[in-house]
Simulated scan of single mutants.
Amino acid sequence: MDDVLTETVPTDDLKRFEKVYHEQLYKNDVTPKAQFEYAWCLVRSKYPADIKKGIVLLQELYKSHDEGQRDYLYYLAIGNARIKEYSKALSYVRAFLSIEPGNQQVISLESTIKKKMDKEGLVGMAMAGGVVLAVGALVGLGMAVASKKS
């Protein structure tokens, strides 16, 4: 399941779906299918700006089209997890599971997101701990130098 958060869309696919979406947008007649396919590609992009754009498109679909709600929620969870918005990702996972509680793919996604949160939380705490130690060492060094001068 980890690969669903790291998988990137082939450039050709992104360009193809982007072209269809923009052609329809120009005609002011975007179908939910075209918007979803483009958003689906965007949330699988390697660029955070694309992922965020895909999330916005999926949120619009979620609010305006009852059909496809499960897919919108699933890819909203993936998009948010990919930009490290884990709390939002988990809220979309929970919303999906409230519709379909036994979906193993989404349960696995939830587990993967929680593991990433734990891993990055520990890394963040270790970095913060290292900064505290470094500051403490500098203060101690400063005090030692100051006491020698007296």
Rank of each mutant, 00 (worst) to 15 (best):
A89D: 08
K119I: 04
V30K: 13
A77R: 00
G130D: 11
C41H: 06
M1A: 05
Y26K: 13
A34W: 04
C41T: 02
L73F: 01
G129V: 01
A49M: 00
R44T: 00
L76P: 13
K63R: 15
G130E: 10
S150L: 13
A34K: 09
V43L: 13
T31M: 08
V9N: 06
L109Q: 02
K33E: 02
V135K: 02
S45V: 01
E37D: 13
Q24C: 00
K88E: 12
A39Y: 07
L97N: 11
V123E: 15
R70S: 00
K63T: 11
S45G: 07
K115N: 12
S45H: 10
L25C: 07
K148Q: 10
I113R: 04
P10R: 14
R82M: 05
I51L: 10
L73G: 02
V131D: 15
D71V: 00
Q35L: 08
E18S: 13
D29F: 14
E100T: 12
K88Y: 06
I107C: 10
C41M: 05
Q59D: 09
L58F: 11
V139D: 04
D66A: 11
M127A: 08
K114Y: 03
I51S: 06
K88G: 04
G142S: 03
I113L: 07
K115Y: 09
Y47P: 07
M143F: 13
K19V: 04
L5M: 10
Y74I: 02
M125L: 13
V56N: 12
K52E: 10
I99E: 05
V139H: 03
E37I: 06
I55V: 10
G136H: 00
S91E: 12
A137P: 02
D118S: 13
G79W: 03
I99Y: 00
G102H: 06
K88T: 07
G129P: 03
G142C: 08
N80K: 02
D66G: 15
S150K: 15
V56T: 11
